[in-house]
């Protein structure tokens, strides 16, 4: 194990996405992006829809998550997310069409529009596209 490694795990209800040692981590926390290095103080935070960036073996890697929370304790960071996709698993064209669909719905502003839901869909799509880039 590297000297400054953090044990990192991303778990969704469907399965464990990643489990391994990483050097650093940036997550979309409730109050904005937040970085975690080794020996971080114990922390619990809610996560927003967005992109998680982490460095593993010196290489930066990205992942799209849609909400959840992060717990850091004893050099162990656990992300519990509703969904999480690593950059190589993202279907960009699907995200793109989801983005367009959500944008269209938001711009039309129908009376029966579920504003919150459409906005969430848009956010998810944007974060997927960002993570895949």
């Amino acid at each position: 194990m590297a000297e400054n490694a953090i044990n990192f795990e991303v778990v969704t209800p469907e399965k464990v996405i990643i489990s391994g040692n990483i050097d650093s981590l940036i997550v979309p926390a409730a109050l904005g992006y937040l970085g975690v290095l080794s020996n971080h103080a114990p922390l619990v935070t809610a996560l927003e829809i967005g992109v998680v960036t982490y460095r593993q073996d010196g290489k930066p890697k990205k992942m799209a998550i849609s909400g959840g929370f992060l717990e850091v304790v004893n050099n162990k960071a656990v992300v519990l997310a509703q969904t999480a996709e690593t950059e190589d698993k993202i279907d960009v064209s699907r995200a793109q069409s989801a983005k367009e669909r959500a944008e269209k719905r938001l711009s039309e502003r129908n009376a029966d529009l579920d504003l919150l839901r459409a906005e969430m869909a848009l956010k998810r799509a944007v974060s997927r596209i960002k993570a895949a880039q």
């Binding site: 109050l31 922390l43 619990v44 935070t45 929370f69 304790v73």
Partner: peptide
Amino acid sequence: EVEYIYEPSQAGVMNVLLPSYVETTVY
């Protein structure tokens, strides 16, 4: 017992965590 830092706040974290706990348990 661990002294946690809460972001945004204890209540804020609990508001996310508890429903999510119930959801997972049911699932």
